[in-house]
């Protein structure tokens, strides 16, 4: 057999091969085109249509008005409330989250009333003005539920949260535990409270702490933090720590923001081990600080449960007109 016959394909074969190569190139180009076009359409569908999304319709609209609404603490409450609302066909809005200016709880409350929501869940600080607006809302047919902090003399329909005095007792117990470990003759404890708050949520907590430590030789000092002005928490803690004569042994924080501020300041000024922190809430940062022993212990309440209960209660009220005035939330300690 002639070797040329094997090596050199015939003209027809070569033609066929070039035709197939040509066909495949065209097919490849076409598939790239179709692929790109498909991707382009997907992109438009995803970005343009999904931004509007599958809109879900609701029959009721509740406003959740709390402090630190975009902190993990606030988001946890909102998460619980939102999930429960979805279940019941109610849209719960983290009121004020979309606004481009920060508004106070009172202003947000007024806005919510004007927006014609069907129910309001509010972290009330119990002052007269808040009470007035709560009453105004009630008068406008909008039921109000307070969470975390109560406005006991308002016409709110219910309070969902931990028993403040009980909470104080829990704090007291944790202070005692820390003090016993410190082994000092005189121990100085600073409790960070809210200033110009006539309420009395934090006062009740403080009373609870005081009562628990009544028999001990512990110097207990309440320090007020002005919650109306920004960054006051960090500034106040800084001042407390820097006061050489009165450096506390233990700092007690009644909310999440204070806890993180205190922890950060102690780390910044290299005073880890010198000052113990008894914190509030259990976010990721706090959890990590507890593991590193920077925060001694933290009081935890079930924030998700608060959200869920408050929505459930409002819905029940709108349906049945009657509900319990106080819904207690369990308290936990993480050490």
């Amino acid at each position: 057999m002639n070797t040329n016959d094997i090596k050199k394909p015939s003209i027809n074969k070569r033609k066929l091969i070039s035709f197939i190569v040509f066909l495949f190139s065209i097919l490849l180009l076409f598939s790239i085109i179709f692929g790109m076009n498909y991707y382009r359409k997907q992109l438009i569908d995803r970005e343009l249509n999904n931004s509007q999304g599958d809109t879900k319709y609701y029959s009721k609209h509740f406003a959740l008005i709390i402090e630190n609404l975009d902190s993990p603490f606030g988001e946890s409450i909102y998460g619980g409330a939102r999930a429960k609302g979805d279940e019941l066909g109610i849209y719960v809005e983290n009121f004020g989250e979309n606004l481009h200016f920060p508004y106070s709880i009172k202003e947000r409350l007024k806005m919510a009333i004007a927006s014609g929501v069907h129910g309001i869940i509010i972290q009330a600080n119990g002052d007269d003005e808040t009470t007035k607006y709560i009453n105004q809302a009630t008068a406008a047919g909008i039921p109000v539920v307070t969470v975390l902090e109560d406005a006991p003399i308002s016409e709110r329909i219910s309070f969902v949260g931990a028993n403040q005095y009980q909470l104080g007792k829990y704090y007291g117990n944790q202070i005692l535990k820390s003090v016993s470990l410190l082994n000092k003759e005189q121990t100085r404890v600073v409790v960070l409270l809210g200033a110009n708050e006539k309420n009395k949520g934090s006062d009740i907590i403080f009373t609870g702490i005081k009562d628990s430590l009544a028999k001990e030789t512990i110097e207990l000092e309440p320090v007020a933090i002005d919650r109306q002005s920004a960054f006051s928490s960090e500034e106040t803690i800084h001042k407390i720590i820097m006061d050489k004569d009165k450096t506390p042994d233990i700092i007690v924080c009644l909310n999440q923001a204070d806890t993180i501020s205190a922890y950060q300041t102690i780390v910044d000024y290299n005073m880890v081990g010198d000052i113990d922190i008894i914190g509030y809430y259990n976010s990721e940062v706090i959890q990590l600080a507890i593991e590193k022993n920077i925060i001694d212990s933290t009081i935890v309440i079930d924030t998700k449960q608060i959200g869920e209960y408050s929505v459930k209660i409002l819905d029940e009220y709108l349906t049945f007109g009657m509900i319990s005035e106080y819904i207690p939330i369990s308290i936990d300690i993480v050490e």
Partner: peptide
């Protein structure tokens, strides 16, 4: 965001158009 998405899609469209022209040419 939509604007940028559309701009991006326009870029793809340009490439697709160039490729279609390429195919037609070939």
């Amino acid at each position: 965001n939509n604007y940028y998405t559309l701009l991006e899609s326009l870029k793809y469209l340009e490439i697709i158009n160039v490729m279609i022209l390429l195919i037609v040419g070939l």
